[in-house]
């Protein structure tokens, strides 16, 4: 008797869940102005609404002083599954006579990038991010290889952490 009751309960529950699904799609169908989430893409080209999380082209963040945060640690290069990142660094001598590795060229091969976001996750400095741009096609393949650090840019000096700790 208990088994029969459970069986009937299951059947009733199945019908209720089917009805729930039907009601949901009916709601979507009768209120398209509320529910439609796709974009009329070429029509709203000047005013597209793209989610902030959208993973487009990779850029190196520069602030207003033309400074970036990349320390040329090459973690992003190691993280990249497609070898689409090449970090070229150079040794420079600082004022106090120390030798230091700084970024020379941040080479980004867009044609090999699959927008997997692993470089962003790997970066310890949050120096790079992905933009919302999605119209990436071009006529010449060579324009797809980009150097992301702007000419004349340099590493942003970090505030002295050790001094803060002492205070």
């Amino acid at each position: 008797m208990k088994a029969l009751y459970n069986y009937l309960k299951e059947v009733a529950f199945a019908f209720v869940s089917l009805a729930n699904g039907l009601l949901l799609t009916l709601k979507y169908f009768v209120t398209p102005w509320k529910s439609i989430i796709t974009e009329n893409y070429p029509d709203n080209r000047n005013n597209p609404s793209v989610a902030d999380e959208f993973a487009g082209e990779v850029i190196l963040i520069h602030d207003e002083n033309n400074e970036h945060k990349c320390t040329a640690c090459t973690l992003c290069q190691l993280a990249c599954p497609n070898n689409s990142i090449q970090i070229i660094s150079k040794q420079v001598e600082t004022e106090d006579g120390k030798k230091k590795k700084v970024l020379d060229k941040w080479v980004y091969h867009l044609e090999m990038c699959t927008f997997c976001k692993q470089c962003i996750d790997a970066c310890p400095q949050d120096a790079i991010k992905m933009t919302n741009s999605y119209e990436l096609s071009c006529f010449d393949r060579s324009t797809l290889t980009k150097i992301l650090n702007q000419p004349g840019s340099k590493l942003k000096e970090k505030p002295k952490v050790t001094a803060k700790v002492q205070e």
Binding site: T25, Y28, F29, P32, S35, I36, I37, T38, N40
Partner: peptide, 13 residues
């Protein structure tokens, strides 16, 4: 059109 609207799309337009 039904398929489009039920899947939160416009359908052919």
């Amino acid at each position: 059109k039904v398929a489009g609207h039920m899947q939160l799309r416009h359908g052919p337009n």
